[in-house]
Simulated scan of single mutants.
Amino acid sequence: MSNSSILPPLKPQLIIPAAELKELNQRSNWKGSLQLLAHLTVMVASGIVWGTHLAWAQWWIALPAGVIYGFSLASMFATLHETSHRTAFANNQVNDAVAWFAGIFCFYNSTFYRRYHKWHHRYTQLPGQDPELEDPKPTNWREYLWEVSGIPWWIGKVKGHIRIALGNLENCPCIPEEARPEVIRSIRLQILAYVLFIGISITLQQPWFLTYWLIPLALGQPILRAILLAEHTGCTHDENPLTNTRTTYTIWPIRLLMWNMSYHAEHHLYASIPFHALAKAHEKIKENLTKIEPGYITVNRKIIDGFTPAH
């Protein structure tokens, strides 16, 4: 597969006229609140089933519930992503607050991520500029299983949080100098939240930190890793948003918990469009997209099929 597109980039405003884009860009506190409530409802309900049947050692019920609960924790990343763009709610302060608390659940930090992700959008798929390309994509089965396991993500997150909490933001050009104190303070507060949770668990002699966060989040990470691999893997390494990002059709529960991030090409073309309008945007631009797949399993199969055979 070529690393660059043979198609000339098409300006987004030529696909969706300004008047229609203005309508799609309308943010809504009501829709954002309903979406967040739905996500939290899945989290609470599956968490109760997980915790109850885990205590009773009914693994045939606990394990599926744990995977759902874990993915609802992991997919709070999608909540953080949407609110970091400040498109989930009409109020920026609400977006920022929800983003920070979502990061507690999914082990990301919104204050850092907002700046990091801005560079990803500015330099999407450009080697040496897009920070997401610093983590190499898998090229064989061993690398794929390692990536999807979530283990390298855990290692990177622990190291990154500690490094930044200690004030080290070297090799982070996406974080401007004036924002660094805020990022450091935010990560320190996040670590403090985990320390308090661990402290409460130990004080009450309950393994809550393990059973209601660490273990289920580890169960949910492989699903999120496979989904995130589908967004750009195998797409072109150039500035053409019609070819450097993939949209993936998926089932409603995944769209719900991922805040419609499956419409990823639409999101990269129009980062100002809220999650609830991405399906409408897709209908308007789908004929122009070159990377549309019928499901995440299909995408991951194609990624695996593209591995270079070992010699």
Rank of each mutant, 00 (worst) to 15 (best):
Q58S: 09
T203L: 15
I254P: 06
N240G: 06
E266P: 11
Y113S: 01
S28T: 01
P176Y: 02
A179L: 08
M1C: 11
G47A: 03
W146T: 13
Y270E: 02
H232G: 09
K157N: 10
Y270S: 03
D130Y: 00
E177K: 11
T87Q: 05
H81D: 09
T290L: 13
L54S: 06
L24A: 08
P181E: 05
F105D: 00
S272I: 01
T243D: 11
W119K: 13
A277L: 01
H81E: 09
Q58T: 11
P64L: 03
N109F: 02
E143T: 12
V195D: 04
H117I: 06
F71S: 12
W141D: 07
F71W: 05
A78F: 05
A226E: 07
T203P: 09
E143K: 13
E182L: 14
K118F: 14
V299P: 14
I155H: 06
D135M: 15
A277H: 15
I227K: 05
A38E: 03
T139W: 00
R225Q: 15
T41I: 10
L37E: 00
W153E: 05
L219P: 03
A281T: 00
K157S: 10
P181C: 09
P136G: 07
I162T: 05
G156F: 02
P207M: 03
Y69K: 09
S84F: 01
S2K: 13
H121Q: 10
I164K: 06
R188S: 00
S110E: 08
Y194L: 00
T298M: 08
T236N: 05
K291I: 10
N25M: 13
H232E: 11
R301D: 06
H53R: 13
M258S: 15
G51M: 07
F307R: 09
P152E: 10
S75W: 03
T245H: 02
L73G: 01
P216K: 05
K118I: 10
L204P: 01
P294D: 11
H161E: 08
W60K: 08
G306L: 02
R301Q: 12
P152S: 10
W50L: 06
L36N: 08
I61V: 15
M1K: 14
V195G: 04
H264A: 07
L214H: 00
V49N: 04
L126D: 06
Y116I: 08
L242Y: 03
A38V: 06
A65G: 09
Y194T: 00
H237L: 14
R115V: 04
F105E: 02
H311S: 15
T248C: 13
D305S: 15
P216M: 04
M258A: 15
G199V: 01
P152R: 03
P176L: 03
H237N: 12
E82C: 09
